[in-house]
């Protein structure tokens, strides 16, 4: 039913970086300005973060964090300065232990500010096999022949 998800492979990103360094911005700009941009089975909301560093290995679905939903309720500062979330999908070593001890998602999902952790599948809602990613990020959207 679904096609495989549009994830940029590591090699692809490396190649992009290398080429960019060699030939500078013109190449990248040209790439961006090709009016053809991204079309695939996954059409999730811009900024949705999939976190799947340890979840699936441990037998749970990947976690989906919706930025759009949370930024209606909190400014970026609350999470990215006060709670210490680094600007990197999968870059925070989040675990359930930290969450139940009130770190990361657990600073809010504690039954006080937001619903508590027993609602496993509201967070662990990702389609099995989905990799850690920021959905719709620039690199993910650029047209590339390897994707289809």
């Amino acid at each position: 039913m679904y096609e495989s998800l549009p994830t940029i492979t590591a090699t692809r990103t490396d190649a992009t970086v290398r080429t960019a360094n060699r030939r500078g911005s013109a190449w990248l700009l040209a790439m961006l300005l090709i009016p053809a941009i991204f079309f695939s089975a996954a059409n999730a909301e811009y900024g949705d973060v999939v976190i799947n560093e340890v979840s699936e290995e441990a037998g749970m679905r990947p976690v989906v964090f919706p930025h759009w939903f949370h930024r209606i309720r909190f400014r970026c500062k609350v999470c990215h300065a006060d709670l210490g979330f680094k600007f990197e999908a999968g870059g925070n070593d989040i675990t359930m232990l930290k969450i139940i001890d009130g770190e990361y998602c657990g600073a809010c999902h504690n039954g006080n500010i937001a619903w508590s952790v027993e609602n496993c599948n509201l967070c662990h809602s990702g389609k099995p096999g989905t990799k850690t990613q920021v959905h719709e990020s620039t690199l993910q959207k650029l047209v590339s022949p390897v994707k289809r």
Binding site: L5, A44, E45, R61, V64, S125
Partner: peptide, 18 residues
């Protein structure tokens, strides 16, 4: 969420998301 391709539509709770 049930149709966006990154959520698991077969999970009942997905339907509860906004």
């Amino acid at each position: 969420p049930t149709r966006d391709g990154i959520h698991d539509a077969s999970s009942v709770e997905t339907a509860a998301l906004q």
